[in-house]
Design a protein around this nucleic acid. Structure first.
Lengths: 217, 217, 217, 217
DNA sequence: CATGAATGAGCCTTCATTCAT
DNA sequence: TATGAATGAAGGCTCATTCAT
């Protein structure tokens, strides 16, 4: 799957890595190709031999990132059986990944950047596909759980998947230390919660809320 | 005894409205003051009579937006009693607001813009304060529920608040029709959920998940 | 010579005073009419009731300043008799004035501002006239000294006047503390001169150099 | 292996030349980088590849100018021996240089521009150093003259240097034909001096005044 | 007369993109 | 293939000037 030139693909990967760093650090608009090139140890013009333009680079980076994320999650969740365990593993995989590559989360935060709305269809579709795949897997796990009788069937699986991803991304932000999310976890007043738990503890707590609910029984 | 249009406060509001539109449509960096001025029906230079610079305008817009959001939520939740009902009302208030002002959600999406990191302390603090206030209120409701015996006490209220806001913002995105979030709700395959529920239905579902959990009993 | 309205002339003077401060502090281009208005305690628009525009204001200020300078010098020199004493008094008057109104010197420093080249003929002429008057007086004093046998006649009086004004303005800059001129006086190394003499001492020294020359006899 | 035009130093010099023209013609503030770029036959953005910003360009231009001036003077004065001859050569070198590069004098006139006050320390220091060096050389020549018994020792060398530079700059302005200075030389009435002498004659006259004084003996 | 809100031309500066080498 | 110098469009911001009140 690599280019003719043995180094071609390596260069491409180097650029993607550099772009991830820079886009994560700066966001889409403020990131400069100059910075990407410097980070990659290449000249600015060289980037254009591998990517059509800034937008193109951005989206290939995004796709690349989503692929890594998915790989990381899949690897963790494949080792488990049972829908709930797999969901927990999915959450944990996500947290782990973000904690280890916090740039990635920042990068993904820029996805909603409206300036990217008018993007090349194909690239946007590729991103969508990756992301949708992620969600589909989760929805699939929920359905599996419903069929197996572990998850209540009276709520559409899509909605449960939504709840799951919502919680998970919020928790991920706390774990990574995003300012606004952090203030959430710290805002609880006198007997405040302990925000800086480990990824594992947070994944557990999250799953307990999702699975058992918060109602007192 | 005054200049051409002495209605300074009205102008200010008009500019904030225009800025909200533009920032929501474009995000922070790509938004041009030219566009804001055009939207407000004013000349570019006039903006500088009301706001120190782009950053200043952005943050006043953000604070303004957060205030409206809070007002909208508080108004709805004050009419309820009981922690759970208030949480439901909070979610519903948030959904309603975002559905009616979908620009606001897009605007808030730009919060994580790294270009805004090195901001004027006072303004950043104001934003944080608004947002932290929102989260604190939710944490407070959870604590209240725990004290009243409606919510299980073995999970820190901060974590529950996190779960709540995570779900709520994800659902809000679906309701507003964000591309990525939408694909989530649609990705569930053949027997997929019905994403375009009303705000009320979604709030209910969300609360059911949060309160009762997804476990089959 | 005042306007109809008894305050009209007072206002005008106030504006000129304010303009002097601001032009001296900032120079021509960086000085803003806003600053002048603030200094004068008036609204920006009001300036335009008294002066056609910024350039006009600048030149009226300049003329005004030159008039004050001339008055101050004439007053001092009229009390002396003899060409050399009058020259000394002229120098002293100039130094005194600048020391008391160091803004004026800074203001005059902006005269050579090339951006002012394309000025209204009449105003430029007025400035020239004032300045030329000053020089003519000095040349006149030199001629008088030559006729009286106090000053050697073999050097054209214009050249001597030139030497006089050159020295005088340089000394004035030192007295006022201009950075570049100051470095001149301080640059003399180990047994350096004492730059911060009084105006009187400097005037004396200057006259000694001019009159007697620096040659060892 | 290089970009479009690898002759970086040549370009840099070309820009400095263009900047000299423009700054001299317009002064600091009114000079536009657009004009500099046009004069240099480059695009506006290109300037920023060679200089950090307008201020930076200005100061490098100034330093460059002062260096040329110093070179020109030193070359002339090194060929002479004896303090007085060297001073004369210094004046002559200065006049010659200014007559040949009248932009330089105009450029130097912009030194007092207050907008330049808050400058980068290093650059300001560089300018000061050049200028102080010039003054120090003159003071040194005076001291040498005093030690050799050619110059009276009862006047501090710094003051004599001041007188020298004052005269010299005034004369230079006349020679270059500055409007205000010109009017000085022309203002002497009927038997007026002949202002447009050659640089050599003016240097001689100046030195005669400085050395012998204007007193009739 | 006085005001000061509004205007908009113009400037500095950045940066994606091109292209000669 | 790689480079990096050059480009020029575009944006934020200032401020002289106007004019409705």
């Amino acid at each position: 799957m690599a280019g003719r030139n043995p180094d071609k693909e390596g260069r491409r990967q180097a650029i993607l890595q550099a772009a991830l760093q820079v886009f994560a650090r700066k966001g889409y608009e403020p990131a400069t190709l100059e910075a990407v090139a410097r980070e990659a140890g290449l000249a600015k013009g060289t980037l254009y031999l591998y990517f059509k333009n800034k937008e193109d680079l951005y989206f290939h980076t995004a796709v690349h990132v989503l692929e890594s994320l998915q790989d990381s999650i899949l690897e963790k969740s494949r080792r488990c059986s049972g829908a709930l365990d797999r969901l927990r593993a999915t959450a944990l995989g996500q947290f782990d990944f973000f904690v280890r590559h916090r740039d990635t989360l920042q990068m993904l935060a820029a996805f909603s950047h409206p300036g990217l709305a008018r993007l090349h269809k194909r690239l946007l579709a590729a991103m969508m596909e990756k992301w949708a795949g992620h969600l589909q897997r989760i929805t699939g796990l929920v359905e599996e759980g419903q069929r197996a009788g572990a998850i209540r069937p009276d709520i559409p699986p899509g909605h449960i998947a939504l709840a799951f991803t919502g919680m998970a991304s919020q928790v991920a932000q706390v774990l990574v230390g995003f300012p606004l999310a952090k203030s959430a976890a710290t805002a609880s007043g006198p007997q405040a919660g302990q925000p800086r738990e480990s990824a594992e503890v947070m994944a557990d707590t999250m799953m307990r809320i999702l699975v058992e609910g918060v109602m007192q029984r």
